[in-house]
Amino acid sequence: MKVQLKKIADQVMVITGATSGIGLTTARKAARRGTRLVLVARNEDALRQLAGELTSEGCKALYVAADVGKEEDVRRVAETAIREFGGFDTWVNNAGVSIFGRMEDVSLEDQRRLIDTNFWGVVHGSLLAAKHLKEKGGAIINIGSEVSDRAVPLQGIYSASKHAVKGFTDSLRVELEAENAPVSVTLIKPASIDTMFVPHAKNYMQVEPQLPPPVYAPEVVADAILHAAAHPMRDIYVGGVAKLTASGAYHLPRLIDSYMKRFAFKQQQSDKPAQDRERNSLYRPVGDGLRQRQGRDGRVHESSWYTQAALHPTATRVLMFGAGLALAALWNSRRSSA
């Protein structure tokens, strides 16, 4: 069955992790395009502020304070969307947390908590969304990572959670397709993104963590999410380096191991002393306002040619064909004048 998705302006969209980073950026972009929103996060004060902001700009937005690691909380989100809006068309599982540190140093309690949010949060949201969307059609969009395909040191349990998200998402997609359900299931795999990911992570290292370059803007991910909400896609790599990493992990795993041993540790450790380890969002939200970006010192890529090409393959082929014809014409003209 070919899945038909509504235009963004005609949709009701549920976004988890909506008060920070990718979720916040996506909510603001969707609101400007007329989407009705169900905003989900643990921080009720931030949710109230965001809903007020978007409502003042003409968007219909409501919020539900919820911990996605708890099934009853996520069920309450779905029930609210159905009661207030008559349902939803797209469900974005974006909420996530991270931990920096060697696997042997990170407590099992912290590892379990991360899995509750990053993996079980996706499972809870996806299954509830699938049950609703099988009746009316729509999209489930799960936020994975480039580490869904290639784990990295110092973020071992985070990598494990994103591997699990990929496995669950791929299996769910095939099961829904096998029963001809009118549901699109997309996995988004971003590279390093300038969000509050690092400040919100729990840090076991002696120095402050940092993201390895290249780093992209959250708007690049938000654009990919909104595209997938209206155009069925299997998966989307955000940033060409994410696709390169996945290809390298598949074709040259030992070479990538060697690269990781040599560079990945240094790339994720800054020269700044570690701050208070207890200031993190693993168990409770950090009250630092509605922030889309950390404000990285180095360069942040505001666009990705690779991702744009992946989202618009037909237009890309036409442009490349046109460029080829132009180069051929230029070459022939030079040969004729020689």
Rank of each mutant, 00 (worst) to 15 (best):
T186V: 04
I188Q: 03
I188K: 03
K189R: 12
K189W: 10
A191V: 00
A191C: 08
A191G: 08
A191S: 11
T195W: 01
M196K: 11
F197V: 02
V198A: 05
V198I: 08
P199M: 03
H200T: 05
H200N: 14
A201R: 06
K202I: 06
K202E: 04
K202N: 06
Y204C: 01
V207C: 10
L211F: 07
L211Q: 11
P212N: 01
P212D: 00
P212A: 07
P214K: 08
P214R: 04
Y216C: 03
P218C: 02
E219L: 05
A222F: 01
D223G: 09
A224L: 04
H227E: 10
A228Y: 04
A229D: 04
A229K: 07
A230E: 15
H231F: 10
H231N: 14
H231D: 07
M233A: 12
R234I: 14
R234F: 00
I236H: 04
Y237L: 01
G239R: 00
G239C: 01
G240Y: 00
V241P: 05
K243A: 11
G248Q: 08
G248Y: 07
G248A: 06
A249I: 07
L255G: 13
L255W: 10
I256E: 11
I256G: 07
S258C: 15
Y259E: 07
R262W: 14
A264R: 09
K266H: 13
K266W: 09
Q267S: 14
Q269V: 06
D271Q: 09
Q275W: 15
R277L: 04
R277D: 07
